[in-house]
Nucleic acid binder design. Sequence first.
RNA 1: GGGCGAUUAGCUCAGUUGGUUAGAGCGCAACGUUGACAUCGUUGAGGUCACAGAUUCGAGUUCUGUAUCGCCCACCA
Length: 1032
Amino acid sequence: MSDLAEQIPNRFDYQISCAALYAAWEADGCFRAEVNPDRQPYTIVIPPPNVTGALHLGHALNNTLQDIRVRWHRMRGFEALWMPGTDHAGIATQAVVERRLKELENKTRHDLGREALVARIWKWKEESEVRILNQLRSMGCSCDWTRTRFTLDDMCARAVRTTFFDLFGKGLIFRGKRLVNWDTFLQTAVSDDEVFHEVVKGHFWHLKYPVIDPAPGEPTHVTIATTRPETMLGDTAVAVHPDPAAALDAHEKSLKEKLTSVAAKERGPLKKQLEELAARRQTHLPQLKTLAAMARRGVKLRLPLLDREIRLVADVWAKPEMGSGCVKITPAHDPNDYEVALRCDLPMINILNVDGTLNAEAGLYQGQTVHKARKRVIEDLEALELVGEIEDRDIDLAHSDRSKTPIEPFLADQWFVKMDQLAQNAMDAVTDGRVKIIPERYAKGYLDWLGEKRDWPVGRQLWWGHQIPIWTQQFENAAAAEAEIKRLTQLPATKAGRLQASLEAPAVVHVSIRDEADPVEQQLEGAGYVRQSDVLDTWFSSALWPHSTLGWPDKTPELEYFYPTSTLITSRDIITLWVARMVLMGLNNVGQVPFKEVFIHPKILDGYGETMSKSKGNGVDPIDVIDKFGPDALRFGLCWLATDTQDVRMPVQFECPHCESSVNQTKQNREQPTIECPNCHQLFSTQWAKLPEDKSHPKAPVTSERFDVARNFCNKLWNAARFVMINLEGFEPQTLDVRALPMEDRWILSRLATTTRLVSEAIDGYHYSDAARLVYDFAWDEFCSYYVEMAKPRLQDARHKRATQQVLAHTLDQLLRLLQPMIPFITEAIWQELSRFGAVRALDGRAEEQKWLMKSTWPTPIAEHHDPLIEQQFSRFVAVLGALREIRSRQNLPPKEEVTFTVACDDATRKLLAPMEPFFKALAGANCLGLGTGFALPDLPAQLIVDGMEVTLDLGKFIDVAAEIDRNEKLLENTVKQITGKESKLSNENFVSRAPADVVEKERDSLNALIQQRDSIVGTLQKLRTVKKTTK
RNA sequence: GGGCGAUUAGCUCAGUUGGUUAGAGCGCAACGUUGACAUCGUUGAGGUCACAGAUUCGAGUUCUGUAUCGCCCACCA
C-alpha cells in the first residue's frame, strides 16, 4: 500500500469533518451575499420555520431543495442570497409557552399579565431559534446568517406597522361584527384555516317550541332538531321554507337526475332517499305549508326556558326535506343562521363569554360551560315535555388546530383587511405570468381561493405578535365623532402623514399611528383613546417577508438589488395562506411581485401514505438521519426522492439502540412508549415514553432505510476519489489534445459533457430527482465501473499513465462540482484533498484559483467533447464485455481462470474493438483470439449474440454442455417467437402502408438481425448436441 | 358536494411528442475479497403496467367509464 492509501481513510468521517467545514466556509464569508452590480442577483427567502417547532423531514426537504438552487447559482456566478429567519407563529408559540406555564407552574397567562408573558415567550424564542438555526447549519444550508431575521424583530415590526398604516389609509382596514371561530381554550378567534373537522358521537334532539296564539287548526308547537341544544338559548327565530312544495319538487328532481348519472352502487341509497321524500309529502308537507303561511302572517313562538318571544320566519335556508323541515335560527353562533338573520332582520344574541361559559343572555344558565348547559337544558326541557325524539348521530365538529378543543362559532368585533382589489392584483400576477407556479396545476387552487375575495380577518386575541396599531374612542353621538375627526385632521402629526383617523358609524373613531413611539400616541391616550389589544395574524407579517427582510419600507440598496426575489420553494399546504398573501402584499407595498417563480415540492408521507406528524408518532427527525447517515446522505436521499408528480412515501424504522438492527415502524408499535426488539429482545423507548420505567430504556432513533442509497453513493464517491488520489502521485499536468486521446478517454469526457448539460437542465427545471439520478449513474456506472476499471491497466503503462491521471483528476474535479449543490460536505472534503496534488486539473493546463469548491465555477458542457459516435461505439464494447461476463457467470468459471473468445462482426466493429482488447482481459478475464469474420466454431462453443455481434467463447473442459443446450433452446424459442411476431407485423398491409417509413425500416432491420441470430443459435446447438452425444 | 393527484417487479419509484424484448434502487438467489470501495463487484430470477371499453397499423403512454387510495376546498338543523 502506498503512503497515501494509508493516509486517506476508506470512510468519510462526517461526524468530525462536517462541522469544521461548515465553520470554515462561514468564517471565509462563503455564504455572504452583497449588493454587487457586476453580478446578477439570485435570491431565495426561506419559508421561515415556526420558531417553537423542531425541524422535521419536510423542512429538511424544503431547505435541501433551496440550498441546491442557491449553491448552484452561486457557482454559476450569481450573487446568491439565501435569506434566513424564523416566524413568531403567534398562536402556536403562545400556546406552547402557556401550556408549559400551566404544567410547570400551574399558572395562566392572566396570572402573569401581558408584559411578563410576552417576556417569557421571547426567552423561549431565543432558545428555540438557536436550536432551529443550528439544525439548518448542520444540514449544510448556505444561508447568509448575517442577515437573519425574525418576523417579530424591529425591522419586520416597522414593515408591519407601515403596511398596516398604509392599508388603513386606503380604507382597506375595517372593523366589523362577524362570526369567528372562537377557540374557548386559547380565548381567541382562529381563522378557517386553523380549524379541522373531526367526527364525534353525538345526538340529534328534537325540540318543541310553543306557538303563541295559534289559529284554530294550526299546530300548537313547532318542532326543530339540533345537535347542540344549548344554543337554543340564543335562538331568535325558527325558519320554515317559504314554498316547501316547490322546494321538495326541486330536491326530487335533482335526486332523480343524480340517479341517472351515478354509479350502480350508489343507486340504492338514492332510491331510499326518494322513497323517504315521497313519504314526507304525506307526513310533513301539509303542516309545512301551514307553517309557511303562519310565518307570512307574522306568527310568533315562545322560546322555552327563557320565555323569549321569537319570530317564525320564511327563509329558503330551511330545507323541507331535512329533519322536521323547520330550523332554529341562532344568528350569533352559526354562520348560516347569521345569513338568515341578515336577510330577515332578526336580532342577534350572543350567549357566550370569551372563556366558553354562558353569559347573562342565557338567563339561569349563566356561568355554566357549554357542556354542562347542554345537559341542563335537555333536563329542563324534558321536564316541560318539550323534547321529542332523540337520535344517535355522528357529528362532524369543528376543532381548533392549535388547542384541539371544539370551536364555538361566535359573533365578535374583528379587524379585517378588505381583499377585493388586493386579491385581484395577486390573481393577475399569476394569470399574466409575472409569477409562475410550478407545477402549474397548483395555480388553480391559488386562483380559486383568491377569487372568493373573502375579507381577511387579521385580529387575534393574543399577546404574542404585532399589536394592532389602532387607538379607539367611542363618542356620545355622530356629531361628536365627526367633530373629533375634524380635530384630528388638523393635528401636525396628521399633516406630516404620521397619523390617520377613520369614523366607524355611528360614533366610534379609530386612529392609526404610523411610527412606533411617536409622541402623538401619548397625546391620544391622554385624550381618552385606548389601543386595540389584539395582535395581527401571523400571516400578516409573513406576507411581508420577501421585502421586509430586505429593509422595506426604506429604499435600501438590498431591496433595489435583490427584490423581486427569484424563487420561492415551499410546500403546497400554504399556497393560499402564505404565497398568495405575499404576492398581494408585495404588489401593494413595493409595486412588484415578491418572486418570479414558486416551486411546490412533494410532501413526505410515511410507509402507509399518511402525513408524518408528531401526534401520530410517525415522524422522522432529520437530526437522527444526520447522526446515522450524515448530512450529505440526508440531502442526496431527499433530492433523489423529490420527483415531480409523486409525494414521497417513506417507510420508517426504529433503530434498536442495543443491537442496531432495524425495526419496522407499524401503526401498532408507533404508539407504544416501549418496544421489544425482535432481534435482541431488549426494550427500547420511543417519543411516547413519559413514565420513569419507560424512560429508563434508551430511546431508539427513527430513520428510514430509504437513505441507504444516498449513504452508499457517498461512500462510493469517496472511495473512487481515494483511488484517483492514490494514483496521482507524481502527477504532472499538461495540455491535452482531446481528439488524440484513446477511445475510453474521449468516451468519459463525452459522457461528462452530456451529463453536465443534462444535470444543469434538470436543476433548472426543478427536476431534482432527475438531477440526482443523472450524476449518480454517471459517477457509479460510467466513471467507477468503466473508466476507473480501465484506468487500472493504463496506469501501469508508462505510455498512458500521464494522460490517464489527468483525465481521472479532471473528471473527478468536474464530478465534484456537479455534486456540490447536493452533497456539499463530502465533495468539499475531497476537493480539498485533491488540491494537494496541484491546482491544475483542467485539460488545458489552467490552474484552479478558488480555494473552496463551493465557490468554484459550475462546469459548462464542452460541446467538442460530446461525441455521439464514440458513445455509440463504446456501448458496443460494453455489450461484448457483458456477453463475456454473462457466459462466465452462467458457466460458473473460477474468476481467475482465463478464457478465450472470438467476436464475429463487421469490419467497422473490428477496428473499433481492436484497441479495447486489453480491457476484455482486465475486466472479464478473457483473451481475444480474433475479431472479424471467418472463425470456425470451437468444439464447445458458448455463444451470445448482442448488437449483431457473435461473441463465442471456447470454454474447453469447463463447459456445462447440458446447461448451454438448455439455454440455447430457450433462446431459440424466444427468437423464433419474435421472428414470427415481426413477420406478421411486416406482412400486415396496414402497418407497412400507414406506419412511418423509418419505423418500418427499423422493423425490417431487426427482423434480419433476428434471423441471423436464429441461424447461429441453430449452428451452435448442432455443435453442442454432437458433443453431448459423443461424451455419452 | 367541488377540485387535484396517484395506481408499473416483494418494497419505494422512473418511464419524454404513442414505435424493437417496460427500467432503476432496495430486497431475493448464485458466485466472488491482499492494492479505491462488502456501505463493494459480476451475474441472474422477478411485471397481464388497477380494471373495462374506445381511438390507432401499433397504447404503460391518448380518450371515456369503473374501482381503490391520498390531498385540498366547501357544506352538513
